[in-house]
Amino acid sequence: MSNHLKRLGDIFGSFVSKDFKRKRLQDESVTDGKPDEYSPVKLKEFKNKNEEIEENEFMSVDCFVKRVATFTDFCWCRDIPQLSPLEIARHGWASTRDDFMVTCDSCNQHLSLAIPDQDSGIRDSCINTAVGRLFSAHGEFCPWATTSSPAHLARIEVPDLEVVGRTAANIAQHQERLPYLKSCHVEKWQEVLKKISKDNLKDIDDERVKNSACILALCGWRPGSLEDTLTDVYAVRRIGLWNFVSIQDEDDILETQRVAEELGHSLEKDRCILPEGKEYLDPVTEHVSWHPLLQNLESGTPAQQYIIDQLCKGPSATCLIDKLGRKDSIRAIFKVRDIVEQW
């Protein structure tokens, strides 16, 4: 009799849904306080983590800049645009401070982006492989494995003149210790300088200090955390003001020339009369080689000239529309991806 009952139990059990059994087993594992890796609790936690990363990491400029700030080693100054720190950071990677090694904070994976020399014969193929690995080297369930930050984060952005004015006011606190900028660097920005509000600079009397501070701000410099230093927006490149000919130094040089001429001597303004160990600052080329300001647009226009042209045109509503459009496009991509995953 017991054998017959067992047999009937097995027959009826065969009609029970496997999904029901799996759900029951998963519920039991949760009840025991030891949720399975693919239990509803774990999947919900993973989904919440994905949503949090998508909201905060992918679209966040601050998070992007924080990743870029880890690429302080000059070994990254190599002529490989596809593997510049900006592109690498856009894919969720940050430098470990070891040679060409990067890591992802989300999945804790590591990736070496060392590329052989040009004469190796395999450089191009290694670059293509490394570019593909920016996605595939992430963990299986890492959100960065399928999504990257918007491409415009790695490109040159036209600065907001109000922000430039405030930054210039902070830079101008260095007064005549600021680098003296040659006329070739000042002239190209003349029209843009007229558009910058000088309200924040009204306490500065020296026009050269105002112009120098504004041009430095336009070129992406800001006061550094250390005294008498400037740094770029990524906090990667830091320069000491003491390394460059200052506005005060330039006054001294001109005075030396004037006195020499009065005494019947002729002095040319070359390195022999420059303060020892100092040189004139070029506010653009002093950036690291992969900085957006040193790149050319697809049209071939230098980034610096593009900024000048756009600012001379004045504020444009199309710029705001373009930014909003890019943001909405990225969100649309996220939605499409979610739909495909649920299909």
Rank of each mutant, 00 (worst) to 15 (best):
125 S>M: 01
209 V>Y: 15
85 P>E: 00
195 K>S: 15
330 I>H: 15
161 L>P: 01
47 K>A: 10
224 G>S: 05
116 P>Q: 06
23 K>R: 13
312 C>T: 14
136 S>F: 06
209 V>P: 13
150 P>Y: 13
275 P>N: 02
157 E>A: 05
281 L>S: 11
160 D>M: 07
7 R>I: 01
17 S>I: 04
128 N>V: 01
62 D>T: 11
245 V>S: 09
107 C>E: 00
76 W>T: 00
102 V>A: 02
268 E>C: 11
113 L>R: 00
213 A>P: 00
333 I>P: 01
196 I>F: 12
331 R>I: 08
170 N>P: 03
169 A>R: 08
139 G>R: 04
261 E>L: 11
32 D>N: 03
316 S>K: 14
62 D>G: 04
52 E>I: 05
276 E>R: 10
260 A>T: 07
57 E>I: 00
246 S>A: 07
198 K>G: 09
281 L>R: 08
171 I>G: 05
236 V>I: 09
95 S>A: 07
164 V>I: 15
34 K>I: 07
105 D>H: 03
261 E>R: 14
191 E>T: 04
190 Q>E: 13
330 I>Q: 15
144 W>N: 02
32 D>R: 07
194 K>C: 09
66 K>R: 15
95 S>L: 01
171 I>H: 07
39 S>T: 05
124 D>V: 01
26 Q>N: 06
157 E>Q: 10
77 C>E: 05
283 P>K: 15
44 K>A: 07
59 M>E: 15
318 T>L: 12
187 E>A: 09
328 D>V: 11
